[in-house]
């Protein structure tokens, strides 16, 4: 079984983002960029399935600017076999990305597509579900366990009340949650090897896909700030404040 994994280049999760003064977005110039953490988990899962003999080839895909090639190289260093960049310089939105991934899935015929559950920049949590819809495939979202079998895959999902297990017909789409695995760090020899792995660059037009945003961002502002609080000296003082000042207990 071939596995397709979608990886997005995003502002690193450790960066405290700043809203641009002109309100058009957040500052991304000279900011550390990394692979979306949920996508690291997706790559790791694919690599583990391959190591377990359940997958034969791992193709990683990103839709984004030239620099997204670095993200793809990281995935190759983690163990993916080859990469495809859908080169696109403007904003990407979930529906457009899902359409690009659909076009690639139709070409590559994977048994499984693994995505992150959420990109930590737009916090959309949509692309996997949209891709599954467009392909007419099953979706195992927010996965904390993925067990492929003959023609099916059992996916344990993190849901509001706890955990739920579903069985999906293959091919299927899976999106990763935090507890699925702990991604490995790429070793130096693997980083070197990754430089030689194939990385193909295509564009949306070539795929016959329209990436035009459907949502127009009118403005981006900072959230309301909380007024600063105080430190209390003791549990007694805390209880007194909660009772008489805040009146919440």
């Amino acid at each position: 079984m071939k596995i397709l994994v979608a990886v997005k280049r995003v502002v690193d999760y450790n960066v405290k983002v700043r809203v641009k003064a002109d309100g058009t977005g957040v500052e991304t110039a000279n900011v550390k960029m990394s692979m979306n953490p949920f996508d690291e988990i997706a790559v790791e899962e694919a690599v583990r399935l391959k190591e377990a003999g359940k997958a034969t080839e791992i193709v990683v895909v990103s839709v984004g600017p030239t620099q997204a090639q670095e993200t793809l190289r990281t995935a190759l260093a983690m163990g993916a076999d080859r990469a495809i960049l859908v080169q696109h310089d403007g904003e990407t939105q979930s529906l457009g990305v899902a359409k690009a991934l659909k076009a690639l899935a139709e070409k590559e015929q994977p048994g499984l597509v693994i995505l992150g559950k959420q990109a930590i920049d737009d916090d959309a949590n949509q692309t996997g579900q949209m891709l599954a819809a467009l392909l007419g495939w099953a979706q195992g979202t927010f996965a904390s366990k993925v067990v492929p079998a003959e023609g099916t895959v059992a996916v344990t999902r993190e849901i509001d009340g706890g955990l739920e297990t579903v069985e999906l017909k293959l091919p299927a789409v899976v999106t990763t949650d935090l507890r699925l695995n702990e991604p490995r760090y790429a070793s130096l020899p693997n980083i070197m090897k990754a430089k030689k792995k194939p990385l193909e660059v295509v564009d949306a037009v070539g795929l016959g896909v329209d990436l035009t945003p459907r949502l127009k961002t009118l403005k981006v502002v900072e959230p309301a700030k909380r007024a600063g609080g105080i430190k209390v000296g003791s549990v007694e003082e805390l209880v007194a404040k909660l009772k008489t000042e805040a009146r919440v207990i």
Binding site: Q93, S94, L95, A98, D122, D123, A124, N125, Q126, T127, G128, Q129, M130, L131, A132, A133, L134, Q139, T141, F142, R157, E158, I159, D160, R214, L215
Partner: peptide, 20 residues
């Protein structure tokens, strides 16, 4: 988790964006 799972699938079938 129910809404997040279903709404994007609905939106894609309608060929519209979803606002999360």
């Amino acid at each position: 988790t129910f809404g997040k799972n279903v709404a994007p699938r609905v939106a894609a079938l309608l060929d519209v964006a979803q606002i999360s």
